[in-house]
Design a binder for these strands. Sequence first.
RNA 1: GCAGGCGUGAUCUAGUUGGUUAGGAUUAGGGCCUUCCAAGCCCUCUGCCCGGGUUCAAAUCCCGGCGCCUGCACCA
Length: 563
Amino acid sequence: MWRNELRDRLLAMAKRRGFIWPAFDIYGGLRGFYDYGPLGSELKRNIINLWRKYYVLGEGFAEIDSPNLSPEDVFRASGHLDKFKDLMTVCTSCGAAFRADKLVKTENADSLSADELWEEMKREGVKCPECGGELTKPEPFNLMFGTHIGPKGKGERAGYLRPETAQAMFMDFQYLYRYFREKLPFGAVQIGKGFRNEISPRQGLIRLREFNMAEAEIFFDPEEKDWPGFEKVSDENVRLIPNTGGELLMSIGEAVQKGIIRSRALSYFLGITKKFLLDAGIDEGKLRFREHLRDEMAHYADDCWDAEVLLSYGWVEVVGIADRTDYDLSRHMEYSGENLKALRKYPETREIEVTEVIPDYGKLGPLFKKDAKKVAEALISLGPDIAGDITVSADGKEYTVPESAYRVEKVKKKVSGEEFIPHVIEPSYGIDRILYAVLEHNYKEVIDDGETYRILSLPARIAPIKAGVFPLMAKEGMDKKAMEIYEMLRNEGINAFYDHSGSIGRRYARMDEIGTPFCITVDYQTLEDDTVTMRNREDKRQERIPVKEIAKKIADRIDGGIL
RNA sequence: GCAGGCGUGAUCUAGUUGGUUAGGAUUAGGGCCUUCCAAGCCCUCUGCCCGGGUUCAAAUCCCGGCGCCUGCACCA
C-alpha cells in the first residue's frame, strides 16, 4: 500500500510540472474543482482519444455532443429530480448529519417524503445515533446544480447542470435509431462534463464537483441474448467480486457460462473496459470488477459492475457498467409522450388473423353523442370474447351498448414486426479518476546516489510529450540542428519538447519525470553523418538512428504500443 | 455538514516566552564551463492562505473564512 508521502510527492510533481493545478487558486481555491495544466490537458486528451479508439473506431459507436445544461423536465423523467438527492437531518446538539431514511425502521423509507419521514421519525422517537440529541426535520439535498434558463419572469425555466451525460443519448434515441438505419444493437457515446454538488469533495481528482466522463449507451433487443464480438473478449481473465461474496479469477467467457455475470452484453463491456484500462497504463494487478449490492444500485440500474482500481486511497471506482434495462426509454416515453420504441422486424411481412371488436360508429354516435368515443374505447378494451348487449363503464358512468352497435370479426392484418423498448447497457468512465490512477500506477521513485529520481512510466501513446529533443551542447550548430528536428517532429504531428539548458542528464531527468518515452540527442556525430541518438525512458538505452527516420520510429512505437 | 491535525517562494524547510531588511536548500530563468544520464561556478525571480481582533509591535496570540489531510457522514 502506498504511503501518503509518496502520493504527496506525486501530487507536488503534478502541480510543479503542469499536470494538475488547484482551480481558482489565487482566490483560495475551491474544493472539488481542478485545472488541468498543459501536460494534464494533453494527457487527458490522449486518454480520451484512446477511449474513442475503442468505442468509436473499435465498436463503431456514434459520438454525440449535447448541452451541459438541461431543462427540468429531463430530470423529472430521468428520476434525478426525485432520486438523486438525500433527505438530510442534522443533530441540534452535536451537529452530526445523517440520511434520515437510514434512521427509521420502516420498510422503503427511502421512498417517503420529507413530511412522511419526519412523522415517522417522531413516531419512532428517533434520536441522534451519536449523542442522543434532537434531530431536525429532514431536508432534501439534491446533488444537482440548479439554475434558471432565460431571463427572470415569464420566459424563465428551471434548469440543472447534468449529473451524467447519458440522458441526451436517450432523448436522441429516435435520431440515433434512424442514423443506424433502424438496426439494433447500436451504441452512442458522449464525452463531456458532468456536475454533482458533492457535500464534501475530497481526495483530489477522485471526487470532483465538475468532472469529465465518457459514457456509452448501447441499445439492444433484450431477446437477443448473444452479443456480436463476444469472442474477442471471452478469453480475457478478470478478477471478479460478485455481490454474493467472494473473489474469483476467471475468464469472461467462464463467468458468463457460470452465470456470475448475467448477460453476455454486460460481460463484453467488462472485457473491453479491462483492455482499455490496461492500454491506458492501469496496473492489471490493481484492477478488479465488483458487482453492486442490490441496495447500492442507482435508481435506474438493474445490475451493475464497477471497474475498481487500487489507489493510495483504497479501491476506487473508475468505470461503472450498468444494465439500465428499459428504464430510461420508458421514463422518457412516459414523460414526453414520444414513441421511443424499436421494431423487431420479422424476416418477411406476415399476414395474421386477429379477432377484433369493431364498433359501429354510425350507431354509437347518435346513441351516446359526446360520450361515443369513450364508449367505443371501453368496448374495444373488453376484448373479442363478447356477445349480445354489453354494459360498459367509462368515467364512472355505465352505458349499455346494443348488439347491433358492434361486431366481432376476424380480420387479416399485415405485420412487419413487433415493437419493443430497447434495453440499455451503459459503460460509464470517470476520465479524471482514470487519469489520476494512471499517474499513481506509473509513478516511480528511484534513489540514485542519494538523490530521488522520478520516472513516470506512461504508455507512449498517452504520454503528453512524445520526445525530448536536445543538443548535447548548445554550440557549434548542434542547437540549431536540434531545433530543426524539434520543428520537424511537430510538423509530423509528434508533440516534442526542445531543451538545451543544464547538463544532458538533467534534461533526460526532466523528461523522465513527466513520462516522455523518447529523447533525441544531437551530438558531434550528427554533424558528420546526420544520425542522432534515441534514448528509451524505461531502460535508458540508446540507439543511433538517421534523422530521417526519427518521426517514423516514434510513430511506430506509439501505435505499436511498445511501451 | 461535524470533529481533530495542518497552512512560510514552484518544492522542502528554519524562524512562535510577539521585537530590525523572514534565513537556507532544491527547482526555475540568465551566463560561464561541459563530448550522453539531476557535475561545478556566478547572477536573478518568486513567500508568512485570506479577513478581522489584541498590541507600541503579529509569520508568531485570539476569532472567523478558505484550502489540504484523517475519521464520521455522504457519494460512486
